[in-house]
Design a protein around this nucleic acid. Structure first.
Lengths: 252, 252
DNA sequence: CGCGCCATTGACAGGTGTCAAGAAACGTGG
DNA sequence: CCACGTTTCTTGACACCTGTCAATGGCGCG
């Protein structure tokens, strides 16, 4: 099943970013093919590889104690995933598209490369920071309460991530159930929201999984883009002592 | 207002992790003092510094177009924040505790350090990956629908992050409004959830901002820890073409 | 052609947001 | 030390939205 990465694929992938300096990393890539539903890695697996989607799509998910599934992220072509240093996997990743191609990079080899090449190390840092920014943006979306806002945000996110001509339709490789578990909604609510957007002529369906955005302005209005301004002192309050411990975390 | 970082503070901070190799980075630190509500940086500011909370607490927030505020993260002593390479700030950060001390590190200097020292570079990568893992965990919490689950998860998170003896009370430096905007709930809902937990004798209040966890098992049950298992093939479906573009993102 | 999965739609109950009011805590100034 | 105003926190009533249950239709696949 594993095939050494073809020169054409790896070249194409990196040329998008115009980033030639990571070619050395691409030489570590081994591409494997997955069918829909097949696991790339599972929860509690040790971290031995880092990955990148070459073609198709995958989902990263977790299961709650009550059996509910939560999709943390969708990975589309070009996306890296599975990064980490020591602790075992907290999520599992499965392909959601037949014939999905995923490149993997031996973690140790990548880290050696990063240790010896500051440029690669910096690029990896940049990827990590970008991921953090994107996750924080998604967090804001998830805290917004209304279903229409979440679904609108999701459609815009998918449209932005899949580089297509604005007039063309956006392809959604995932099922409605996946979307629901991604947005923290019930399937029926997702379906109702999509129907409402369609009836308002904000979107149109070429097929069940192909959406065309007819009125992006309205969609963005529903998604409630963040305000541009700086701060709002407003609510404040505090009581007792500070500095009762040290954690070590990072974010943008 | 800026004070050169005292040796004692910087030593204490890093000794927690037992990580001596980042001492070189600490020599770049400059500590500033902020009053409650004072901004550390604002939205759209250029990224010129990275930061770490020395004492007190801060919140990272964004404002929606409709005026709603969303708190992306709380930063407690020891937490790094404000990382990034090029793009301007997407969020603003304000102290939420009077007399909060925050160390800042000139971005360029840190990057030079990382370029020249693979160990520092690796430590920064590790911080970034940890942050990603934590954000993904929070994402799962936010997609969980019920208010009791969110509030329970929040209390457990705060208890874990503020290193205190289990019998001791957890201090919440933020207001109920902050908690609400952090969990994507209304203030009243947060208050009601806390009241219910108190009436069930799961928690008790030493003061409004000091919570003692009486029955951690129940709290964890409500917070619905993630299941340990691997995968669940279940729902699948796909229709048309794949690989219609390239994005470049990363996650665990 | 029939079976299974996916998607949509409807009815209904429960949870949450909103509005409103009151209680408690804090800061200030006398 | 106390009185006062402001802010925070709590509690109640009610409407709306969303989750749940149920049924139907569509699509792919054997």
């Amino acid at each position: 099943m594993d095939i050494p990465m073809s020169a054409s694929i790896h070249k194409c992938a990196w040329e998008i970013r115009g980033d030639r300096s990571l070619g050395a990393l691409e030489r570590l890539a081994v591409v494997a093919r997955y069918e829909a539903g097949e696991a790339v890695y599972r929860c509690n697996d040790p971290i031995e590889h880092w990955y990148r989607v070459v073609r198709g799509a995958a989902r990263k998910s977790a299961l709650s104690g009550d059996g509910r599934r939560h999709i943390v992220d969708f990975m589309l072509p070009g996306d890296f995933f599975g990064f980490g240093l020591s602790r075992p996997r907290q999520f599992c990743v499965e392909a959601i598209f037949p014939g999905t191609l995923i490149a993997r990079y031996a973690r140790m080899a990548v880290e050696r490369l990063a240790d010896s090449d500051p440029v690669i190390a910096r690029n990896i840092r940049e990827l990590a920071f970008e991921a953090i920014v994107r996750l924080q943006g998604r967090m804001v979306i998830l805290s917004r309460s209304k279903a229409l806002e979440r679904v609108s945000s999701f459609l815009l996110e998918m449209a932005d991530r899949s580089r297509i001509s604005p007039t063309h339709a956006v392809f959604l490789p995932m099922s409605r159930y996946d979307i629901a578990d991604y947005l923290g909604l019930a399937v029926e609510t997702v379906s109702r929201a999509l129907t409402e957007l369609r009836q308002r002529h904000v979107i149109a369906f070429r097929s069940v999984r192909q959406v065309r955005i007819c009125d992006r302005a309205v969609l963005e209005g529903l998604a409630e883009k963040l305000a541009e301004q700086g701060s709002q002192p407003s609510r404040q309050r505090a009581t007792a002592l500070a500095g009762q411990g040290e954690t070590n975390q990072l974010s943008n």
